[in-house]
Design a binder for these strands. Structure first.
Length: 427
RNA sequence: GGAGAGGUCGCAUAGUUGGUCUAGUGCGCUCGCCUGGAAAGCGGGUAGGGUGUAACAGCCCUCGAGGGUUCGAAUCCCUCCCUCUCCGCCA
């Protein structure tokens, strides 16, 4: 959520941001918000004055009742009318504030000045790489689906039987490989990158979704357990960022860095027919997610660190990748700046997004009310929140299987992973 | 799932026949006095949001959350959330 003060003081900046995001059509919301804001102030003023009167006179009535001197009937009669006016004003005010809140929640985050201009994914800028590693693939490559099937380590058909399309099953060495990847990544981030491990709930309430910005905008992409009012998390970002929702953080504790494994659930409504093969788009996948809470002035340095933490995994596994900076038209509404890490798929002959590393600045912190007091006594400030996948195993698995395949259809396990798999070859 | 108890300003507590509660007290923290220095003692301060102001002040809201009754609610009523105890079921 944007600070209403930014809208008040720099409405033109907000409108410029909407244009950079290819959302110029939303510009009218800014003026609407300003108008509502003015009436709100005026109404608050009137309501507060009436409340002050009521409080003062109520004390007079109390005095009269206590001392038994005189009658309070006339005052009570007057206050009855005042109270009615207050109720009416408060009700109007509540309605108006709901509208303002919805408008404000609907506005995307301000963009960092370094975010490239552009309309679509075509306009994203290469930031790092491509980083290549030598693999001998001087034979016709097989795609991950066929490899998984022929080796008996992935079963999409049975997954479809027991749950539906897009729920892969890992079997035997495939299951072990998946677990090895997760453990390897968690160990790397906790032992070498300074993160504290968190194992979060996979079901959250609506307030948590709202806090990180998945609600209400992406409501249709989240699995909902109606009976209990719970939602399956689309990413560990949701429970982990919400760990500190509504808290005043100890400034000495900043920056806070968490890493969490979670299964991730996404309905992917409306995206059928696009990159749906095998692991390219699934409803449930595994991801290790890094989340940081920082002081505002430290967040862009932290963004680069998270990026390099994620890169370290790919470097250790020797998987080719590149990093791109998302342009204004492609970046998500919550983020002020975002890098995508893409891994190379030899069979698809293209890069696949395996990680998204974002700085939300105070956008999520304001929604979820996560603050700290800079020097212990001044006004509280919102922290900056960031996160980055490190990484999602589904796309990583695609790239790993395809890169490490042999001419006779086996998979060589990357050296760094062998302590975790306990074997060095599948097939 | 059933029965009961409870959620108060960092912590602990007072406050439940509605009105000196604009929430008292203790601890903690902090500032000052005192001291050669410290302890003790004494005195002051000790949340967040809104509005307002040049900045203060002032005013409004918040006693788990949200409604309701009332001129007036920490206090009465309703709904929900959470914690604890007991019972049942259970990985």
């Amino acid at each position: 959520m944007l600070d209403i003060n930014i809208v008040r003081q720099n409405p033109d900046d907000v409108i410029a941001m909407l244009h950079r995001r290819q959302m110029g059509g939303e510009a009218g919301k800014v003026k609407e918000l300003l108008d509502l804001d003015r009436s709100r102030k005026e109404m608050v003023q009137r309501a507060d004055d009436l409340k002050a009167t009521r409080n003062r006179v109520s004390r007079e009535i109390a005095d009269i009742k206590r001392t038994g001197q005189g009658s309070a009937d006339e005052l009570i009669r007057q206050m009855k009318s005042v109270s009615d006016q207050i109720s009416e004003l408060d009700a109007d005010l509540a309605k108006l504030e709901t509208v303002m809140e919805e408008l404000l929640l609907g506005l995307p985050n301000m963009l960092h000045h370094s975010v490239p201009e552009g309309r679509t994914a075509e306009d994203n800028m290469l930031y790092k790489g491509p980083v290549e590693f030598t693999h001998d693939l001087d034979f016709p490559v097989t795609n991950h689906l066929e490899l998984g099937k022929s080796l008996g380590i992935l079963d999409f058909e049975r997954g479809a039987k027991i749950s539906g399309a897009g729920f892969p099953v890992y079997i035997g060495k495939g299951a072990r490989l998946e677990r090895a990847l997760i453990n390897f990544m968690l160990d790397m981030h906790t032992e070498h990158h300074g993160y504290t491990e968190v194992f979060p709930p996979f079901l959250v309430n609506q307030e948590s979704l709202r806090g990180t910005g998945q609600w209400p905008k992406f409501a249709d992409q989240v699995y909902h357990i109606c009976e209990d009012g719970l939602y399956a998390i689309p990413t560990a970002e949701v429970p982990v960022t919400n760990l500190h929702r509504g808290e005043m953080l100890d400034p000495a504790a900043l920056p806070i860095a968490y890493v969490a494994y979670s299964a991730c659930f996404r309905r992917e409504a409306g995206s059928y027919g696009k990159d749906t093969r095998g692991f390219l788009r699934v409803h449930q996948f595994n991801k290790v997610e890094m989340v940081r809470f920082t002081r505002p002035e430290a967040s862009y340095e932290a963004l680069e660190e998270i990026l390099s933490n994620a890169e370290a995994i790919l470097r250790a596994l020797k998987i080719p990748y590149r990093v791109i900076t998302l342009c204004g038209g492609d970046i998500s509404a919550n983020a002020a700046k975002c890098y995508d890490i893409e891994v190379w798929s030899p069979a698809e002959n293209k890069y696949l997004e395996a990680s998204s590393v974002s700085n939300f600045e105070d956008y999520q912190a304001r929604r979820s009310n996560i603050r700290f007091k800079p020097d212990g006594k001044s006004k509280p400030e919102f922290v900056h929140t960031l996160n980055g996948s490190g990484l999602a195993t589904s796309r990583l698995m695609v790239s790993l299987l395809e890169h490490y395949q042999t001419a006779d259809g086996k998979i060589v396990i990357p050296e760094a992973l062998r302590p975790y798999t306990g074997f060095d070859l599948i097939g």
